[in-house]
Every structure is written in structure tokens, then in C-alpha cells.
Design a binder for these strands. Structure first.
Length: 480
DNA sequence: CGCGCCCAGCAATAGCTGGGCGCGGGCATTATTT
């Protein structure tokens, strides 16, 4: 095992830092001792430095399995910027020739970024098998537990892929994972003996608030008030693409704020542009679905509002955790109108299947008809792995029960009369800090925006539309 | 005519492949605190 001094020397020489961030050293030394590690580290801890350093010390290729092409491209760009040129992302964006080239030159590569779908492909796997691996990294490892069974079944194959690759040293990385999700990850990847390095998910500088409103109209009004009066920028989360557009349009029309909508229905180009605008500080408010988040590392987000409910408390912690990365005060406001929980149930329903539907899909499979829907694709995984209809049915029922339980816990958080941070911490099996005035909003308290220094200096509410005369005058000016 | 009941509308999350079709000139964001 490498000496402590040698690691610090490497940190200094290669990156110019004198100290590791919390967790980094521990994870690296476990890995260098040959231990698989599941690391739950807050965003901003420098997770990529961990595998970069291990990759530098241990000979062989570092494979980083990542859920999003945009994340892979980010990482490749970042490494290139740092001077590391032996890096590639193998994605469907590359044409056949470029892919072949990457696979032929694996031996010269140090880091390969890849999706589970791509890694699973036989030619890719065959090429990777020929190369010595130093480390297998599963980035955003919670996707195994949530995205796998919902709509990306290839995440369920990662355990088997790891076996095929000869069980390389494995690092599982995530920012938020409950005990249940962690267990899920370890089971799926078949690494029961992995060391767990877990840091608190608590973010003391994010004030927690829940506001009950009577109905949709009241919710809109309150949203408008919040985005106008609270320091910017803000993220507003929705569970409907259409609503992100409608509310963004409405905010644009009724305030002077710079507002954009963001969801998976936009073109990749639009998504990229809007994300860049947001990162550059050219937007005050982004109305987004859960598509907006991973890889967003903007330090000065002051407010995260939930216009619709998150799926569960773990998602909530992840989503509000995008605020206040700079350590300055920030606020998370969940707006709740009676009946909002029904939308969560409806969305959960999209990933459920009855015994009859499951039976019918197995029939489809035996008839060798292609899997067309998300559900079919997920079920396909189970059929090709020899599961029976009753087994799959039981699994789907269990998953729906877990989602129902998650919703119950979320509602407990919403209806709480006591410290909400304590409820979040309890959900993550952490001990809660002592409640303070800047922790969260107890029943009947107003938002301490002034005390937190989160008020905007001037309010920019503009409940007027531009008169036609002005628009016409501008047109004439432009043409003259 | 007024009241109450009922109903409709309806939802997120990504990767990969391959073929059809239309169109217009092009190496992209941007960094450095992981």
C-alpha cells in the first residue's frame, strides 16, 4: 500500500492542493488497499479526483460508468483541461469509425467513460475484457436502485458485467443514498464486503420550508412572490413538462425576471443552451423537471422551490442540495396544495404492472416480439434472466409498496409540526442537529428571509404588459 | 333556475439504432476550488 506522504505529494504535484477534502483520503487509501468502496459524499467533495488519483497510481484502465452522455462529456473536457489526454467517452454520438478507434486504442487509454447500455454490447465488452483494469467506477450509483427497475434495465446488468470483467476493484459513488438504496447497490453489484464511506447529507445553510396553499392559483401567486423577493437564481421543480413551459411563460409575462423552462422534451441543443445560460448567470429562474440536476454544479443557487412534490425524501434532499453550494444561506420551499400527492401516485403508476400485464409481456417475449415500451424493456431483463411471472409480479408489487411508503414519509415531512431537518436526518439514519432559528420553518412562522439575508434589494414585479405602441415604435426604430 | 354531482384531462427520468428527409457551410461551452 502506498504511503500517506506519497499520496499527499502526488496531490500537491499533480493538483496543487495541500489537503484532501473530507472523505477523499479515506476512499483512496481503501481502494489502494484493494477494498471495494461505496462512497456517499456530498457534491463538491471532488469525487472525480478520487478515481483520477487511483488511476494514476494503479496501472490499467479506469472505466467510469455514467448515466448521462452530458456528464461523460463534462468529465472528458475537464480531464483534458487538466492535461490528461488519454481519455475518451464511448457513446452513440460517435460514428462507427470513431468507436472502433476508441476500442482499438483501449490499452493506451487511462480513463473510459461509458453508459451501461454501451458497456453491455458484446463487441465493447469483448474489447474491454482484453485490457487490464485498474478500477471500475459506478458514478451516480443510486441510478442502479432507481433508474434500473424503472426505465433503464441495463443498470440491472451491471453486476453481471462486473463479473464478466473479472471483478475489478470497484468504486461506487453517489451524493445521496439511504441505507436501503446502499444495500440495493451492494446487492446488485455483488460487492457485499465493500467498505462504506458515508458523509452526512445535511446541508445546514439550506433553510427548509413547506408552505400550504389553498389551490393552484394561490400556489402560482406564492411562487411568483418567492421568485421575485428571494435572491437569485432559483430552480423551480415540476413533475410536468407542460407546466414548466406554462409557468415559465407566465413568470416571463408578469415579472421582469429572466426565466426559462427545461425538460427532456427539449432538443439536446436547447437543453445545452439553457443550462449554459443558467450556469453563466443569465437566468434568474429555471422551471424544470427532474431532468435538470445531475451535473449542475452552480455555487450560488439561492432558492429551490417545489411546485410539484418530489417522488420521495431522498430525491428531495438531492434536489434542494443544488442550492447554496457556496455555503451561503439558501432556502428550499415546498409548495403544497391539497391533493398534490395524487400526481406522485399517478407517476408511480406509470412504472407499475399488474400480474395480467406481466403475463401478457412474457407471452410477447416467448413469441419473440420486440419490446417497445419502457415497461416491456424492463421486463425483458427479467425474462432473459429466467425469472417467472409470479416472481416478477411479486417484485413489482414490492416496488410499488416501497414507493407508497416513500410517499407516506414525504407527507409526514410536509405535515410535520416539529423540526423538518430532524425528519430528513432520521430518514437517512443520521442524528439530527439541534433546531435553530435558521434551520427550518415551524408551524405558523414566517420565512426569515431578511434574517438570512435572502431578500432582493428591489422587487421587480412587473404586472404590466408592453403596450403595442411601444412594440411598434421599436420596430420602426429598428427599420429606420 | 339553482344546486350538486360527475367527468375529463393528465403528467418524469435516458440510452441506443437506423432510416427518411431536408438543407446549407460548421469544430462548438467553458473552465481553472478536486
Amino acid at each position: 500500500m502506498m504511503q500517506r506522504e506519497a499520496l499527499y505529494q502526488l496531490l500537491k504535484n499533480k493538483y496543487g492542493f495541500d489537503e484532501f477534502r473530507p472523505g477523499q483520503y479515506q476512499v483512496i487509501s481503501e481502494l489502494l488497499a484493494g477494498q471495494d468502496v461505496l462512497a456517499v459524499l456530498p457534491t463538491g467533495t471532488g469525487k472525480s479526483l478520487i478515481y483520477q488519483l487511483v488511476g494514476t497510481v494503479v496501472p490499467g484502465l479506469v472505466i467510469v460508468v455514467s448515466p448521462l452522455i452530458s456528464l461523460m462529456q463534462d468529465q472528458v473536457a475537464r480531464l483534458n483541461y487538466q492535461g490528461e489526454k488519454q481519455v475518451a467517452a464511448l457513446t452513440s454520438q460517435l460514428d462507427f469509425g470513431a468507436r472502433q478507434s476508441v476500442l482499438r486504442h483501449l490499452k493506451q487509454l487511462k480513463f473510459l467513460f461509458i453508459s451501461p447500455e454501451m458497456l453491455k454490447q458484446a463487441p465493447v465488452l469483448a474489447a474491454v475484457e482484453q485490457v487490464p483494469l485498474s478500477l471500475l467506477v459506478i458514478d451516480e450509483a443510486h441510478c442502479i436502485s432507481t433508474w434500473g427497475p424503472d426505465f433503464r434495465p441495463d443498470y440491472l446488468s451491471l453486476g453481471a458485467l462486473k463479473q464478466t470483467l473479472g471483478n475489478p476493484l470497484t468504486l461506487m459513488l453517489t451524493a445521496t443514498a439511504t441505507a436501503k438504496v446502499r444495500q440495493d447497490i451492494l446487492n446488485q453489484l455483488q460487492v457485499p464486503s465493500a467498505q462504506q464511506v458515508i458523509y452526512s447529507v445535511n446541508r445546514p445553510n439550506i433553510y427548509l420550508a413547506v408552505e400550504a396553499v389553498a389551490n393552484e392559483a394561490a400556489k402560482r401567486q406564492r411562487l411568483q412572490q418567492l421568485v421575485v423577493t428571494v435572491k437569485r437564481p432559483s430552480i423551480v421543480y415540476f413533475s410536468s413538462k407542460k407546466q414548466t413551459e406554462l409557468i415559465a411563460d407566465w413568470l416571463r409575462a408578469t415579472t421582469a425576471l429572466r426565466v426559462a423552462a427545461y425538460h427532456a422534451g427539449l432538443s439536446a441543443e436547447d437543453r445545452f443552451k439553457i443550462q449554459q445560460q443558467f450556469m453563466a448567470g443569465d437566468l434568474d429562474v429555471i422551471c424544470a423537471t427532474s431532468a435538470f440536476g445531475m451535473g449542475i454544479n452552480k455555487a450560488d443557487i439561492r432558492q429551490v422551490i417545489h411546485y410539484h412534490l418530489p417522488n420521495n425524501l431522498a430525491d428531495y434532499v438531492q434536489e434542494i442540495g443544488r442550492a447554496g453550494r457556496d455555503g451561503q444561506p439558501a432556502i428550499a420551499v415546498l409548495l403544497y396544495a391539497p391533493g398534490d400527492e395524487q400526481l406522485v401516485r399517478n407517476l408511480n403508476e406509470l412504472t407499475s404492472a399488474s400480474a395480467i400485464e406481466i403475463q401478457a409481456d412474457q407471452q410477447r417475449f416467448t413469441l419473440q416480439q420486440p419490446a417497445t415500451t419502457d415497461l416491456s424493456q424492463v421486463l425483458q431483463y427479467y425474462w432473459t434472466h429466467g425469472y417467472t411471472v409470479p416472481q416478477v409480479t411479486a417484485q413489482f408489487e414490492q416496488r410499488q409498496r416501497a414507493k407508497a411508503a416513500d410517499l407516506t414519509q414525504l407527507l409526514t415531512y410536509i405535515q410535520a409540526k416539529t423540526c423538518r431537518r430532524a425528519i430528513l436526518m432520521q430518514y437517512f439514519n443520521e442524528t439530527a442537529p439541534v433546531h435553530t432559528a435558521t434551520c427550518c420553518q415551524l408551524a405558523g412562522e414566517r420565512l426569515p428571509l431578511d434574517e438570512l439575508g435572502l431578500l432582493t434589494r428591489q422587487t421587480t414585479s412587473r404586472p404590466v404588459t408592453t403596450p403595442w405602441e411601444q412594440i411598434l415604435a421599436q420596430l420602426f426604430l429598428q427599420n429606420s
